[in-house]
Design a protein around this nucleic acid. Structure first.
Lengths: 336, 336
DNA sequence: GTACTCAACGAAATCGATTAAGGCATTCTC
DNA sequence: GAGAATGCCTTAATCGATTTCGTTGAGTAC
């Protein structure tokens, strides 16, 4: 392995000079710097990230955290798109990505300790149980963090605009004549609360009554559970004309349940999802849903995190709202 | 930050003793070791991965490589499942995961250089253009590598059993009476070649003729492209009774095309996919497909890689075949 | 000629941990 | 009881890079 010592010998200068030349320090003459850079290239020099991290206390590595629990993991298309974009943007800015988790090998570390152990310059928390004390510990530590769809005090966060998104969806189905709208939501997280509140508020504003039996709880990204909720709704005396699903994947569970009952979409029942993952637009009929801009979310997260890392003194915590967009699809029928 | 120096002071021993005690060296008395471990715990000591990596030349970090090109990226469910399982197994064995890519920040590094720069102990190449010289360079370097569905000489690889999988599928539709079978395949990679060859061989063995116009090329994971291929097939004079798709996602493109033609699945045309991602079993009708055991693939990959890392002298390259399983689904009709 | 500035580079400490080699008691061996 | 063996710990070098002070010599001002 070629080190800066090899280059210094080859060039007849000190290691300090090589280091400075390679990092563009101002007190190295242009010719010397050029000569050193060329020699480095010729010899195939590569900086050693570990040595650098040790000396500088900076690893140029950012941690990402996805809940290990099923559902919010990286195998969900929405989250994997976010992962992909946060990775792309981080790499563009010169940072690598490492996963942060609990329980690495035999040593039992929590999230904070793991991030610390790996010298992460910052951590992006994409999906997690925000009531977990281990998450709070991380988010109140000295390590810069950016969270998705949840805000900690004095921390930056990326907020996918759930309130606006839900309002948009409700207004969309309203404009299509729907007045009896059922709402299947996911587990009661803060995101769920926002969506549900926005749903209720918009309905109220539009003069739509929402009977309690129209609101059901299911599990995010779990077609089976939303299928059950769908069945319960279909057994009501007064069936809704439209059903909201917690997310696009959950809709699939509803779809097969509706089929079993001999109901067509959107002929007999209209439906909307949430997330707008690519899959939803490949299905036939195309799902009416609200697309969360996963690419922009990841990009903004990386930007915000690296901004804090690189300019700690001028940095101010921000909440960045990322707007999504309505995907009209074909699953809402106009019954006006 | 607490270092081993702090602990050595606190315990009145040398730093060497602390290090050895913490690593379970044999020449430290039981009491001293206990006292040191307890002090370390009490003071909240965390080893510094960078210092360790620098000194030992081992980072306990393994790189994973997913092609940046669309399609084989981490946002595809099959690959994200593999990523998830390789991550889980690596973590269980005490390793972290870092993404390896080209072009990190301003410095232009290829894959090998990137892995080297980050001191990766090994690299798992899950999806990549194996004709890329940068990949060959990595796979002929001193860094341990494990590849998926492609083998380099003297290297370990994980092989999802494409030959067997395809044969199983062909026999399955054969048993259901199909004799006119169209085959849409992906881009001509080595995996594609294996699947196509296996398809042809099995057909030949069963006495099924495969006219050239029944074989079409599409793009993996691209519903649009498989939709076009489907259309071409449907316009043939003699329509097949069954269509093979390159993968489950591609099937979706075929599905909407079939719908446009007023054809029902499997009433009018039977179809099979490949991959067996969870999505395929949530769709209605459930897709008949061959499930690649993504969890086992990731697990075996991590195991093989870490085995080579930790026992370089007794290590022998292996090709591990991971069997999948037939998911019968509901998209193949018995026309016997 | 003196005093000072400035550009360009080097010496050496440092980051935190690991490990080979060595030291010093104490115990064992015959 | 002398020498060997053992147990337990320390010293010091080392991994590769960064960075704070110097130092040196040339140039400038008066």
């Amino acid at each position: 392995m070629i080190t800066i010592t090899d280059i210094s010998r080859e060039c007849g200068v000190s290691r300090a000079t090589v280091s400075k030349a390679l990092n563009g320090a101002p007190d190295i003459s242009a010719e010397t710097a050029k000569r050193i850079r060329e020699t480095a290239k010729r010899m195939g020099y590569l900086p050693n990230a570990a040595a650098r991290a040790l000396k500088m206390g900076r690893s140029y590595n950012i941690g990402v955290l996805f809940s290990d629990a099923t559902g919010g993991g990286i195998s969900h298309e929405y989250f994997s798109l976010i992962l992909e974009s946060v990775k792309a943007e981080a790499e563009r800015l010169g940072y690598d990505i490492t996963f942060i988790s609990k329980d690495i090998g035999a040593m039992d570390m929590d999230y904070y300790e793991h991030a610390k152990y790996r010298n992460c310059d910052g951590v992006f928390i994409a999906s997690a149980d925000f009531t977990d004390p281990a998450i709070s510990r991380l988010c109140t530590s000295e390590i810069p963090t950016v969270t998705l769809d949840y805000s900690f005090d004095s921390r930056s966060s990326i907020i996918s605009d759930n309130v606006n998104g839900m309002e948009t969806l409700v207004r969309f189905v309203y404009e299509n004549g729907h007045r009896k709208i059922a709402f299947i939501h996911g587990e009661m997280t803060s995101v769920t609360q926002k969506r549900l509140a926005s749903f209720r508020k918009t309905c109220a504003a539009l003069g739509i009554a929402v009977p309690p039996e129209y609101v059901r709880e299911a599990v995010y990204h779990d077609p089976r559970s939303s299928g059950l909720a769908t069945r319960a709704i279909l057994e009501l005396n007064e069936r809704p004309t439209c059903i909201f699903y917690p997310d696009d994947l959950s809709f699939l569970g509803g779809m097969s349940e509706l089929e079993k009952h001999g109901l067509s979409i959107p002929g007999d029942v209209s439906v909307v999802g949430y997330d707008g993952i690519p899959l939803s637009q490949v299905l036939r009929p195309r799902l009416s849903t609200y697309r969360q801009a996963a690419e922009r979310i990841g990009e903004e997260a990386a930007k915000a995190l690296i901004d804090e890392i690189e300019h700690p003194d001028t940095w101010i915590p921000q909440q960045i709202t990322v707007e999504g967009e309505l995907l009209k699809g074909d699953t809402v029928r106009n019954i006006g």
